[in-house]
Amino acid sequence: MEVIVILIPLALLLGLFFIGSFIWMTRKGQYDDLETPRLRMLLDEKPKKGRVHEQD
């Protein structure tokens, strides 16, 4: 049973880590659009054929 002394803080830390990262991701806007990204990932990028867009 003594192992629980290590396991519980570990579980708590793990939980806190995930809550923390969830808050961070939400604040960064990762969850603002829940529809488009799941579709966007289906589209393949074509390898660029030496044509580079100017992006400044």
Binding site: A11, G15, I19, R27
Partner: peptide, 24 residues
């Protein structure tokens, strides 16, 4: 509006995390 939406998600996330840990 954006802030409100994110806050709402945070509320749900915190509730989910709280409820599942409490369950344990």
């Amino acid at each position: 509006k954006l802030r409100e939406e994110r806050l709402q998600l945070l509320r749900i996330g915190v509730a989910a995390a709280g409820a599942s840990n409490i369950m344990l």
